[in-house]
Amino acid sequence: MKVVGVSACPAGLAHTPMAAKALEKAGKKIGFDVKMEQQGSMGQINKITKEEAQAADFVLIASDQKIQEMDRFEGKPIIRVNITTCIKAPEAVLKKCAKAVKEKK
């Protein structure tokens, strides 16, 4: 399963990198290829290209904020998850999203 996503939080200081790393780590553990872009206090980090976005099975937005450059994800299943949930239970989030995307296909 190939996953790309973006994390963002109000201050952009701590929750943004935490959610990104938590999801990437969980991905490694369960054999998902996860790349998370951080839109935080340092701007866009680990930026996802349009090609990467289009190759992904789904897009995970770990935020309830406005995300920059959503147009690169056009045509892809996009799932928004609360950033806190992504930090707390990253593995469950990935598995649930993957299941939802599979069922829709």
């Binding site: 200081l13 943004t16 990198p17 935490m18 938590a22 340092m42 930090i87």
Partner: peptide
């Protein structure tokens, strides 16, 4: 505690590393 206008990204980067260390 971070100033609104951070001079450079070093401090922000360190805070980011601290946050991920907490995982």
């Amino acid at each position: 505690l971070v100033p609104e206008e951070s001079a450079g990204n070093l401090h922000l980067k360190m805070i980011s590393s601290l946050a991920t260390a907490l995982l």
